[in-house]
Nucleic acid binder design. Sequence first.
RNA 1: GCCCGGGUGGCGAAACCGGUAGACGCGAGGGACUUAAAAUCCCUCGGGCUUAGGCCCAUGCGGGUUCGAGUCCCGCCCCGGGUACCA
Length: 807
Amino acid sequence: MTEQNSNAPPPDTESYQPAAIEAKWQARWDECGTNEPDLDGAERPFYNLMMFPYPSAEGLHVGNMFAFTGSDVYGRFKRLQGYDVFEPMGFDAFGIHSENFAIKVGTHPARLIPANIANFRRQLKRIGGMFDWRHELSTTDPSYYKWTQWLFLQLYKAGKAYKKYAAVNWCPACKTVLANEQVISGFCERHPDTRVEQRTLDQWFFRITEYAEHLLADLGDASKMDWSDTTVTAQRNWLGRSEGAEIEFAVDHNRTIRVFTTRPDTIHGATFMVLAPEHPLVGDLTSVAQREAVDAYRTAAASHDLISRKIGDREKTGVFTGAFARNPATGRTIPVWIADYVLMEYGTGAIMAVPAHDERDLEFAQRYGLQVTTAVGEDGRLVESGSFSGMTVEEGKAAIVRWLETSGAGKGVVQYRLHDWCISRQRYWGPPIPIIYCDDHGAVPVPEQDLPVILPDIEDFRPDDSGISPLARHEEWYYTPCPVCGKRARRETDVSDTFLDSAWYYLRYPSTEFTDRAFDAERTRRWCPVATYIGGNEHAVLHLLYSRFIAMVLHEIGLVHFDEPFAKFRAHGLIVKDGAKMSKSRGNVVIPDAYIARWGADTFRMYLMFLGPFQEGGDFRDEGISGPRRFLDKVWNMVGDCVRNDTCGGDVRHAAVVKWHQTIKRATESIEGLRYNSAIAAMMELVNVLREDNCCDRQVVQDLVIMLAPFAPHFSEECWERLGHTTSVFEELWPEWDENLVVEGSVEIAVQVNGKTRSTITVARDSGEEHVAAIALADATTQRFIAGKTIRKRIYVPNRLLNVVVG
RNA sequence: GCCCGGGUGGCGAAACCGGUAGACGCGAGGGACUUAAAAUCCCUCGGGCUUAGGCCCAUGCGGGUUCGAGUCCCGCCCCGGGUACCA
């Protein structure tokens, strides 16, 4: 903070003293339960949700404060519109962030987290959020993760959870699994000399791909989902729907290779085939002569980590298998290769390569001297394609799919990019997956009455070089009787993904006091789905998609009445500092506490909301804070004038009345659209007009105080009390405007000649065109531009402009 | 590469559906009050001309549509974010 901004206001008892006022009202809200809606009896429930934070050791920075305040402004606004607003808060405290930090500082995460949460709670209270703290939750609390485990069991019972072998990043130096973000261009972040490898582990998955179509369809259903376009687009891309065909290429009488393509029209140009190195047919197809080369290539491919395998600009490599397949369209025999640019997880793990029409295939063909045959000509019509020649690409696609289906060589299919959700984490800091492995009974779910499976409080939570999950080292926990036969069995040692914790937390909030159920049916019916959800766009895909998937499954098994959890979602913008996103590595993170101490929470909230549009964010600068503070001081004094001299009610100038109604309209519409900066600007304009007129009319001032309440809640409460009221300002109703008073009696009209504004005239509102034209044409300035010319045309926009076209 | 955003004064920004570009705020300059400073209040502030009435230019660049374009269309450039060998 710079010196010039640290000037405290004079110690006048009449002046605005934020610290005392804020403490007073925060205490009173707690006492009176102001922020605690009646969850069972609310008549107009409105669930206003903000993405819960991960409680880092650093606390909330101003970027977080911006997001939380923006959500809170909206909740308070809805409250003033007469809704029963439920605004809960909690902590997403499991996961690799917490665990890595704990490892770094050498303190157990279970010891670190409570202190971080306490700090977050203090900050969130200090900023004046309308949170209902009765319903606070933490995902690390056994009373919460008991139900995360229960949720896993519901998915398991519904057949939506299954186990399969899947690759993970493995650091041979740490001897542990790494998350993707811990792999830096192929190397371990902690061991820059150690290349990360792929390891295959047996892991739990959820069948989200079964819901690809449903997830996609709802995105286009405005009645179910009012979401930011950017978020909808991101999800659509992630789902990655592609229409195409699956085609069988025969190798011999009993073996075929199935490929997926989005371009069946180019099949006549398929001159070779490529399988992913791990494709199950590779071993079988490889000729004796090629075996050694193929095996070497497969081993090399497996040793790459998961990330660098997928980097597109790598040089293409591959090996010929020695096998040939028959192109069903041309009848020609084409060679079968393996190459790591073909991925096993997408399509069928095998492609027909059409080098003439696919850049990657072309690069590969050129490197290995493979044939290139054109299937579509310059004019966009099929060539060298037998009876299909001459068709457009679209006609060719349809005709070839029809031919494939009648000949039995293939069929039209829809393919999604989305993969099933791997929820296994070979880590310590998460909810243990509630499964027990018995030699006789296989994987057995933990009976629901035995939940939660408590995460044991072990000191050796660090992954060590034994290569075994930390939980497996804890023998009295690891060995447990089989729920079926009672014989000694072993617990699943993986914990679940943090995204599972956050995929259902909104369901828990209204029901936190129930210990015998995850979420109460009655409460859920009243409060869910969430009315407005606000959060960062970094969660546009995974968190929001997983939450939607979980809601769909719960809906399907009859546990909730909705299949889309968030009726309205808006992504907040980012606060930048000195032109760059705030981050620890850049060293430009601004901690809000000192600003709040100096200026007060209300001024700080006002400044954050004023510095840019909420959905876009803005630049945080110290100098800007003084503006909103000066504004609050002016309102403070105006309230004082109103209390002392309550007689000016009758003589509000008409222009001020108009401004008053315009302000109500603009503030209402701006807040609804999350353009908080415009709402504040409108109120500033009103105050400027009132001050010019020396007006402190009670009705106007009261409306202003109410409209300020979402932004400056403590300040507004205090003003409301000074105005003689004994109840909370949040018991009041948002003011309404009179549409007739939004427009002034006379309006200024622009007079244009050939589209250029030459002068302005003032006429009565809604004046007719002839009347306006008569005055406008008599105007001396206008005359200079039309003198001696013919008027060709006249365009009149009532109350705005008159354009005279001359020539 | 692809998909989203965005580019407007010294700075943060505003502008509904195409209709007077720059509201509101910061900052700067000048003035009032004061012994002085802070606070507060008043005036000025996109650029260039100017006979002082105005005129010309101006919303990243180049075209276009229109009586009229920051806003719509086409082609580029730059910045931010996401995503990436997805066949």
